[in-house]
Design a protein around this nucleic acid. Structure first.
Lengths: 230, 230
DNA sequence: ACAAAAGTGTTGCTTCTACACCCATGC
DNA sequence: GCATGGGTGTAGAAGCAACACTTTTGT
């Protein structure tokens, strides 16, 4: 039950910064409360050790399921953090991922899990364990940058959404207001959205039309040199 | 002289994709010839094991010096490769970096080193060890993407360069021709270049004016919301 | 009828693209 | 004097930013 190597090896972990957007357009991150030292009882990113027989992304997905119940989320590698002192016990290198989930559909799922997990607004995060604050900062920067030139924002919305929801999403992430008419013109001209014959329900005002993002169309346009840009 | 852990740990390495641009505007990568199994005698990216007391970037820089003699190069983390079968002997996770060097000045230095190192044109790479082809591909994609919205291209040029050299650099990396007048207008309007009172020497035609990139100006403009873009 | 958000066009301005000729230098 | 690349301006097209009112629906 022990593994011996000629040279010392850092431990290898994965950590996930999972973003969600709630009904009030607050950008949130999923955290878990640690029940082990160090940083016992502090909030931390979901994550854990990479097993010897699994790839990094597999490890990240496994930890997400185990710790938060989230499955099939959009997940991309963010950065690898390897300073020597980031874990007080041991040399631990962590490969960080960022994820995007649709909070409208996933909220209940995550809540049913055994571990103490919670969504926190990014503007109002508790102190985090290890260097997780730095990881979150980098994830935010990456999200802000990437959302402008890749159509990943749709991962944060339900499959069918209104143009106003989409606009609010960009306004929240980019932290700037956008002009309604210009936004709609721009996004519709790209031809990436499918206009549905369905409308919002349960709102006390004129119901907005629903749209769906078409990843297939995007792949095709991209092959022809099209560049998404907000 | 042995290190024992409760759970098995992947080995951790770093690898560097170092780009250089030669006098004929060929984009090149620095490779070393392996003298150990596996992949003995094959070409590979410079790199090696991360020591327990050094950070990832420190390890990358150390390996670069040891294996190629290159020092003080621009270096940025690229991606971490961790599939289980990427090394036939053992589970090895590698953190890849990409680097940019000024070939005009560094060419001799690298050549003086003991190991068998060589610059290869990216269009004409030999077969590479491990998954290094994939790493190189990703580095190329990243370089192509990043060079457009961050002024990193200057790292590939001598400190003093002509606008034509700069234009050729972009044409090479982006793999597209650019209009001379439009390019010059655009780049000069950004106010990032310092016009020198010096000119090319040793050319058999009108000597071109030399310019220098001003990183200080760039930092200032960036703080004020300026975005570099080619 | 009122409140709340949906939906829709035009104009001026800026930026981008396309394009051709004279200039300076070394041989 | 010729070959080589250096250096420069303009016009038309496209894209961007700014801006306000009517429509629909629920209460």
């Amino acid at each position: 039950m022990a593994y011996t190597y000629e040279f010392p090896r850092p431990a290898l972990t994965v950590d996930c910064v999972v973003f969600g957007l709630d009904e009030e357009n607050l950008l949130k991150i999923l955290l878990i409360q640690r029940n082990l030292a160090p940083f016992e009882n502090q909030w931390a990113l979901p994550g854990g050790f990479v097993r010897i027989e699994e790839s990094l992304e597999t490890a990240a997905r496994r930890e997400l399921v185990e710790e938060t119940g989230l499955e099939n989320v959009f997940l991309e590698q963010l950065y690898t953090f390897g300073s020597c002192d980031r874990d007080p016990r041991d040399r631990v290198v962590t490969v960080a991922y960022y994820g995007l989930v649709n909070l409208w559909e996933y909220r209940l799922k995550a809540a049913t899990d055994a571990r103490d997990t919670r969504w926190f607004a990014v503007a109002d995060l508790p102190p985090l364990a290890f260097d997780h604050e730095a990881i979150v900062q980098l994830a935010l920067t990456r999200l802000k940058g990437k959302v402008r030139y890749e159509p990943i924002g749709f991962e944060l919305l339900p499959e069918k959404f209104t143009l106003t929801q989409l606009q609010r999403l960009y306004e929240t992430i980019l932290e700037q207001e956008l002009d309604k008419r210009n936004f709609r013109k721009k996004i519709l001209k790209m031809n990436l959205l499918i206009q549905l014959d369905e409308y919002q329900t349960g709102v006390s005002h004129r119901a907005a039309r629903l749209y769906r993002f078409d990843p297939e169309k995007y792949r095709n346009l991209k092959k022809k040199g099209f560049n998404f840009e907000i």
